[in-house]
Design a protein around this nucleic acid. Structure first.
Length: 258
DNA sequence: ATGTCAGGTCATACCTGA
C-alpha cells in the first residue's frame, strides 16, 4: 500500500496538477492539506473520475484537509482533534483504509513568533500529542501524515540560521515534535534515510527550489505495527518542479500488505 | 531586507496567511 501526503496549496487552483500527479503516481491513499476551499467547493467529481473516493473537511480561504483512497471510500473515524470542538480551523481528518488507520493533519504555521498564532500552534500540537497517545496503541497500523510545520533537526533545513526567528524552527514546537516521537512514533522518512538531506518544502522566493534551499516539514509518523510493515519512503521532487506547482512536494511511503 | 503564491473582497487593487 502506497500512502502519500501532499500539501497541495489550493486544491482547485492546482487541480490539473493534482490529477496529473494522481494519474502518474497512483498512490493508494493520499492525505491532502491546504485545500483552501470551502466544504462545498471540494472537487469531488474530478477526484472520483480519477478513481478516488474522498472525505474532506473544507474551510473558506485557508486550511482544509482530505483523505483520498483509490477505488474505495475512506471510512471516516473523526474530522477534528478531541478538545477542539469549538475550533473552526480545518486541520485534522482521520479514516481507516484497508485495515490501516490514517490521520491527516495540517499543523498551524505559527508565525510570527510571540503572537497568538504561535501560542495556537503550541496548543494545537499539545492536542495532537494527546490524541496520538490514544492512537498509538490501537491494534492496527497507524500512520499520522501531514504538514507538521516543524523542522525537526538542523539537517532538515538548507540553512538553519535563516530559520532561527521562524516558528517552524523554534525550540518549543521542536520539543513537542520530539515528545510525539517519544510516545513511540517513528519518523518514517528519517528512519529509512538517516543521513540524507531531504526537503519537502521550498518557498516561492529567491529561486529556492532551483537552489534546493528547502526544509523538511511534511512527515509520516508510524506506530509499531505500521513500522513493522514499512518498506520504502521518499519525496516526489518532480512534482515540485512543475510550472505552477505547490510549494510542497508529495511525500510517500510503502507498507507491506498485511 | 528581499521576495511569490492563493483566495477573497464594501473587487478589477489590495488584504491575509503562508
Amino acid at each position: 500500500m502506497r500512502i502519500a501526503t501532499f500539501n497541495v496549496n489550493g486544491v482547485n487552483g492546482r487541480l490539473a496538477l493534482l490529477l496529473d500527479w494522481l494519474g502518474e503516481a497512483q498512490p493508494d491513499v493520499v492525505c491532502l492539506q491546504e485545500l483552501k476551499a470551502p466544504q462545498e467547493k471540494f472537487p469531488q467529481q474530478a477526484i472520483a473520475k480519477a478513481g478516488y473516493g474522498a472525505i474532506w473537511q473544507g474551510q473558506s480561504r485557508w486550511n482544509g484537509v482530505a483523505i483520498l483512497a483509490k477505488g474505495r471510500d475512506p471510512v471516516e473515524t473523526r474530522r477534528r482533534l478531541p478538545g477542539e470542538e469549538e475550533d473552526e480551523q480545518a486541520r485534522y481528518i482521520e479514516a481507516a483504509v484497508d485495515g490501516v488507520l490514517i490521520g491527516c493533519l495540517y499543523a498551524p504555521n505559527g508565525n510570527p513568533i510571540g503572537t497568538a498564532k504561535f501560542d495556537y500552534k503550541l496548543g494545537w500540537l499539545e492536542r495532537l500529542i494527546d490524541h496520538a497517545g490514544e492512537l498509538r496503541d490501537v491494534d492496527c497500523p497507524v500512520v499520522l501524515a501531514g504538514d507538521y510545520n516543524v523542522i525537526p533537526e538542523d539537517k532538515d533545513a538548507y540553512k538553519p540560521e535563516r530559520w532561527l526567528d521562524d516558528a517552524l524552527f523554534q525550540p518549543e514546537p521542536r520539543a513537542l515534535y520530539r515528545r510525539l516521537l517519544g510516545q513511540g512514533w517513528t519518523d518514517a522518512v528519517r528512519h529509512l534515510h538517516p543521513d540524507e538531506t531531504i526537503f519537502t518544502f521550498w518557498d516561492y522566493w529567491r529561486n529556492a527550489f532551483a537552489r534546493n534551499a528547502g526544509i523538511r516539514i511534511d512527515h509520516f509518523l508510524l506506530n509499531a505495527q505500521a513500522l513493522a510493515r514499512l518498506e520504502a519512503a521518499g519525496v516526489d521532487k518532480d512534482a515540485r518542479a512543475r510550472q505552477g506547482a505547490s510549494d510542497h512536494a508529495p511525500v510517500w511511503l510503502d507498507l507491506a500488505n498485511g
